[in-house]
């Protein structure tokens, strides 16, 4: 049910992001979605790729500091208020969102966002009960 996200610790110095992208490219990975959170010193690159388990190993072997996190891929109606509706639902049930970023491609006519929450199962339940589709691991990594 959850989507495997790879997080990479990066110092804020030139060439580090490019090094990750190059390494993934050389090993045939396709980056499906990404986000960067940063301070002036360091950043965390978050990635959704096909075959996350192998990507994790490849990055680790190359000396990167990596970790694996489970996130939700939520289908959001692609129209004004689509995202707001989903967020309201979670907010109303007291589920905190740590961060969120969007997928490049669409899933059926819907936009796809990645959500990091503490209460994964509870979030899926709430969203499902309200007709919001949470995408399956296999589907997301293949999109």
């Amino acid at each position: 049910m959850w989507v495997k996200q790879i997080s990479v610790f990066l110092e804020n110095k030139s060439g580090r992001l490019a090094a990750v992208a190059r390494l993934l490219a050389d090993n045939g990975f396709n980056i499906r979605a990404l986000s960067i959170a940063d301070t002036s010193d360091f950043g965390i690159l978050r990635l959704i790729v096909n075959d996350p388990a192998r990507a994790y190993q490849v990055l680790k072997d190359a000396g990167f500091t990596v970790s694996e996190t489970e996130v939700l891929a939520v289908e959001v109606p692609d129209r004004p208020g689509g995202l707001a509706g989903v967020l309201d639902l979670l907010h109303d049930t007291g589920i905190n969102i740590e961060y969120l970023y969007a997928f490049v491609s669409k899933s059926g006519g819907n936009a796809l966002v990645l959500l990091k929450v503490e209460a994964l199962e509870r979030a899926v339940e709430v969203l499902g009960a309200n007709g919001i589709q949470v995408q399956d691991y296999h589907i997301v990594h293949q999109i």
Partner: peptide, 18 residues
């Protein structure tokens, strides 16, 4: 250097550590 096995992927943890 950040210890390799300490990295959780969460921003908050790194900020707290610093």
């Amino acid at each position: 250097e950040l210890a390799a096995d300490y990295f959780t992927g969460a921003f908050r943890d790194l900020e707290t550590l610093e």
